[in-house]
Amino acid sequence: MADSQNPSHTSGFPYRHLLGIEGLSPSEIGALLDKSEIFVEHNRKMDKKLDTLHGRTIVNLFFENSTRTLTSFELAGKRLGADVINMAVETSSVRKGETLIDTAMTLNAMQPDVLIVRHDQSGAVKLLAEKVDCAVINAGDGQHEHPTQAILDALTIRRRKGRLEGLRIALCGDVAHSRVARSNIHLLVTMGAEVRVVAPLTLLPTGIENFGVEVFTDMKAGLKDCDIVMMLRLQLERMESNFFPSVREYFHFYGLDYDKLSVAKPDALIMHPGPTNRGVEIDSLVADDFSRSVIREQVEMGVAVRMAVLEILSANLHSEKRLRNL
C-alpha cells in the first residue's frame, strides 16, 4: 500500500490500489463516497466527457464473465478521457497455459496506468498487484471482495437515506460464497450501520458472527424494522452441492416477496447487485417496484463510483511517480 504520510495525497484516500474494503477507515471510505457524489451530478449532464485522465491507459482484465461491471468500468474510464482496453479471458493467452503472473508481467511491460481485474480465485488480484507498477482495482476476486460494488451500494443508500450510521441493513441470501456480501459487511460495519445477515445455515460462512453482524436464519425475523434489504445473487449451481434442496424451497423461505418485506420499515429500500434471478431470490414484482427497489439506481451509482476511484488512484500514482523522480 502507499504510505499514508505522503502529503501530496489530497483525496483522503492515500493508497496505490483498491483491493478490498477490509482495513479502510471511515474517513477513507467517506472520501471515496464524497468524490463519487460529484460524478453522479456530472453523469446526468448531456456532455459527459472529461479530460482528467487524458493520455492514461486503463486495461480491463476480466478472467471471469461480466457484462455490467465491465461496461461500468469501461464507461467510467472513457468519460474521464482515458484510453480503455478490454481484455477478455477467451482471447487471452491465459488459456494457453500462461500463468496469472506471466500475464501480469506482460501487461505491465506495456505501461498501463490502471489495471482493473476480475478473477474467479480469491486473492488472485492481490497476487497480480504485487507484480505490477501500475494501480490495480479489484473488480471482484473469487469469494473475497468486490470493493467498488460496496462503495456504490453505500453511495446509493447515503443519497436516499442521508446517512449510513445507525441504519438497520439486512444482507440476505448466499453470504458464504458472496464477495459482495464480504465487502458490504466490512464497509457498512465500519461506517456504523447495524448490519444483519439472513441466510440458511448452509449459506452462512463459519465465523461470520465475528464480523460485527447479527445472524438470522429466518427472513421475517431478520427483516424486522430494516431500513435496507440487500439481496444477494444465488448461484444456482450451489443446488447441486446440496446447499439447498430446490429453487422452490429456497424461494419459499428466503425469496424476497411482499409478505416477507412487510415486516421491514414502510420506507425500506430493496437492493440487489444484479443480475437478479427472478423467482429465486427475489419476486419479479418486488424487483420492479420503483417505489421500493433502487436496483437501477445502483447501476447508475456504479459508473460514478468507478470514475471517482479511477481519478483518485491515477492521481496517487502520478504523485508517487513525481516524488520518486525528485
Partner: peptide, 13 residues
Amino acid sequence: NAGEVATRLGLSG
C-alpha cells in the same frame, strides 16, 4: 482450515 480466517479471505475451508 475452515473458520473465521478462511471466511475473511473468501477461501473454502
